[in-house]
Design a protein around this nucleic acid. Structure first.
Lengths: 158, 158
DNA sequence: CGATAAATAGACCTAAATGTCTTTTTATCT
DNA sequence: AGATAAAAAGACATTTAGGTCTATTTATCG
């Protein structure tokens, strides 16, 4: 695969949070339900994003996650780096063994070309490039309420 | 990781074969020693490349592997496809669930941008972009002979 | 203060990717 | 024909990514 599942999850989660109103924190449960990411696995990813200071978490009642900075200051590159999916920097992925700038392998140039494209894509795009085009009154609500029509009701009433 | 180990191996192996003289087949043992790919794992990858008709294999004594076509007719894309690392085509990697052209997710455009760059890189580059710049009298020889200086001697004389 | 609701932490499981080993098949050479 | 040398096939082991579950901590509310 060219993009790991984990980095895809991280980008999706951050994109979701970028669409939520910034005043109140988003619970991981809602984020999981809305984005289709398994709850407990998502929690691990969110923790890493908190450690990378891309998110702020609030424990306890009324807790949840909020972006730590404005959307235009969170690059895709930061998100990928936070989950350890940082695009290869130093080493040439296709070099056999001891490939570097001084002693390049036969694929060094063409690999560097692609690597540069990926890096600039990740460095030039921020969460600002990802916000919804059309204002949606349901943003920030758990999407279960969108289906059921009863936004306040928890999913485990028993 | 952004590129799987297997697809990296496949590209390296093909690049190595592209550097070898086309008249005689390269043994997988030599290919493994030269490229640093584990022998038996390499064998599996080579078999897939044969099935994809990018390589021709010759069994028995004096056997080995040769490119099935001229270097400028083997695209990186073909190699990646052969080992099932084909860059994502239809689906949007960052879409949540039901993202497509008609109903795009908030990351559809920016993902499509990157995906297009990766695809064109893989489609536009062939093994011709990878051949060594400087002719090397040792190409096609097992690299162990390069170190030992006794090209004809097998590595298990006992 | 006690109940509740959230993140946090970490043990643990599963599946897929990766790597190793052995046997079988097939061709070539003497 | 027999010996040898190669790919082919496939069983098996290991590692890592991905995913689940449970307990703990921390905050808020009544």
């Amino acid at each position: 695969m060219l993009v790991s599942q984990t980095s895809e999850y991280a980008l999706r989660a951050m994109a979701w949070l970028a669409s939520a109103p910034p005043d109140e924190p988003v619970r991981s449960r809602d984020l999981a339900a809305g984005s289709g990411i398994p709850l407990h696995y998502l929690s691990k990813i969110l923790r890493r994003l908190v450690l990378a200071e891309l998110l702020v978490s609030q424990k306890g009642k009324r807790g949840g996650f909020v972006l730590a900075r404005p959307v235009n200051e969170i690059r895709f590159l930061d998100i990928l780096a936070a989950v350890d999916a940082y695009p290869t920097q130093g080493r040439c992925a296709f070099g056999w063994g001891e490939c570097d700038e001084l002693n390049p392998c036969t694929m060094h140039d063409t690999w560097t070309e692609l690597n540069g494209k990926i890096l600039s894509w990740a460095a030039d795009n921020t969460l600002a490039n990802v916000q919804p085009k059309v204002p949606d009154p349901w943003f920030g609500r758990p999407p279960s309420s969108r289906d059921a029509g009863t936004p306040e009701e928890p999913e485990k009433p028993a």
